[in-house]
Design a protein around this nucleic acid. Structure first.
Lengths: 156, 156
DNA sequence: TAAGATAGTCAACGTGGTTGTCCAAAACGT
DNA sequence: ACGTTTTGGACAACCACGTTGACTATCTTA
């Protein structure tokens, strides 16, 4: 490390601030487009549910949280009208969690908005620099999955 | 956006995973060095307190949370022995929150470990690429401060 | 068929953040 | 100087999220 390098603790700060700005921007735009009650957490849950739906246990596995936590989150999303539970005809234990039309709409919009935000970043620092940034991050982080237990992880 | 660009939603994911890996690595090493009970949240609080100490209200302002939340966090840190409250001789209302020796030790260690981790990233992708990454992040995020209300922000 | 594994829910508990309320001490204005 | 704001801190109530433990219902398997 040469003397011109910034202190190491700034690196995670920059990463997080970037993350937070993107998420905040997405949700600000989603609010304008008719989804004001979606939380940052929810977006990742939608992503994990996908258009085909899943079960609470599988969702928990994908998100790296307990099945109870996943169930609670689904409860909240169900109240908001973004997902619905359907009984699996082949297995009476399972309840398939599926996106409602509203959920699919939100997922499609957020994907579009994320692309737009990425384009804004590309316009600011250049497409090649942005691709390098993403590639470098992928290099150092490896294939680590996204874990959703953020509140508990962060605060303990 | 050209067709070879990845979907935009991967960008925040990569940023967050990078953030989380750094934080996890720091705390794993801190645990090995005698600070097993420090949470990710706490590190940022230490940073905000600094070696000179502050008051709960000022801390709240710096961290972007309510003064009550800041007070609670200080309570927890006090229980763990990382900070102590001293009455301000010049102003009987104020209670100065200061790092204990243990708190200072932890802060110094985490700074060192962050530098080491940054050096590891530099070794993987190259010092110049890392500096570019940091510079580009600074460009797109501007001078946005770090806000500590992560649990509430994320989950709502 | 009996035993074991799996899906989902309920309850209890801890952490964190928020707003509302209140009190003591300092600052301000007439 | 005195009364009125303003400020720092703490208490309570409440909500959101995570966890572990326990229990039921259902499917799988030996």
């Amino acid at each position: 490390m040469s003397t011109v390098d910034p202190p190491g603790f700034l690196l995670p700060l920059r990463l997080f601030i970037g993350f937070r700005q993107l998420i905040d921007a997405v949700h600000a735009e989603l609010a304008r487009e008719g989804h004001p009650d979606v939380r940052p957490l929810h977006g990742f849950v939608f992503q994990a549910i996908g258009r085909d739906g899943t079960t609470a246990v599988e969702l928990a596995r994908r998100l790296g949280v307990s099945k109870q936590a996943a169930g609670k989150t689904v409860d909240g999303l169900e109240r908001l009208g973004y997902v619905e539970r359907a009984t699996d005809p082949a297995d009476a234990r399972r309840k398939l969690v599926r996106l409602t039309d509203r959920g699919v709409d939100m997922l499609a919009r957020s994907a579009r908005i994320f692309d737009e935000l990425r384009a804004e970043w590309a316009a600011q620092i250049g497409s090649d620099r942005l691709r390098a940034l993403e590639a470098d991050l992928a290099t150092v982080t490896g294939s680590e999955p996204f874990r959703l237990d953020v509140p508990g992880w962060f605060a303990g």
